[in-house]
Computed example of a mutant assay.
Amino acid sequence: MSVPDVIPIRHEPDYRTRTIGRWQGGQFFASVTAAFPEGWSGDDWQSQKRWCAVLHQFDGAGRYLDSRIRFTGTTADGEEKSIAAARRLLAEWLDALPERHYQDIAIAPFAFRFEGALFGLVLEEDEEETDGVWAEFYPDGLGFYAPWDGEYDT
Rank of each mutant, 00 (worst) to 15 (best):
residue 45 W to C: 14
residue 49 K to N: 10
residue 55 L to K: 00
residue 42 G to E: 04
residue 54 V to G: 06
residue 22 R to D: 06
residue 59 D to N: 15
residue 56 H to E: 12
residue 44 D to W: 01
residue 35 A to L: 11
residue 43 D to R: 11
residue 37 P to V: 14
residue 58 F to K: 00
residue 60 G to P: 10
residue 59 D to H: 12
residue 27 Q to M: 13
residue 52 C to W: 04
residue 16 R to P: 03
residue 17 T to Q: 03
residue 31 S to I: 11
residue 33 T to C: 12
residue 16 R to T: 05
residue 36 F to R: 06
residue 37 P to T: 12
residue 52 C to A: 15
residue 55 L to V: 08
residue 33 T to E: 13
residue 17 T to N: 04
residue 44 D to M: 04
residue 29 F to R: 01
residue 45 W to I: 12
residue 19 T to F: 08
residue 49 K to A: 10
residue 24 Q to L: 15
residue 16 R to A: 14
residue 24 Q to W: 03
residue 51 W to T: 01
residue 20 I to Q: 07
residue 28 F to L: 12
residue 23 W to F: 05
residue 48 Q to E: 12
residue 54 V to C: 05
residue 23 W to S: 03
residue 18 R to M: 15
residue 35 A to T: 05
residue 60 G to R: 09
residue 56 H to P: 08
residue 61 A to W: 13
residue 39 G to S: 10
residue 48 Q to I: 01
residue 41 S to T: 14
residue 41 S to E: 14
residue 21 G to H: 04
residue 49 K to H: 07
residue 33 T to N: 12
residue 49 K to W: 13
residue 20 I to F: 05
residue 47 S to E: 09
residue 19 T to H: 11
residue 34 A to D: 13
residue 44 D to K: 02
residue 21 G to R: 04
residue 54 V to W: 01
residue 26 G to E: 04
residue 57 Q to N: 13
residue 27 Q to I: 09
residue 38 E to H: 12
residue 47 S to Y: 02
residue 54 V to A: 03
residue 35 A to F: 11
residue 52 C to S: 15
residue 24 Q to M: 14
residue 41 S to H: 09
residue 47 S to I: 04
residue 39 G to L: 07
residue 46 Q to L: 07
residue 46 Q to M: 10
residue 59 D to V: 13
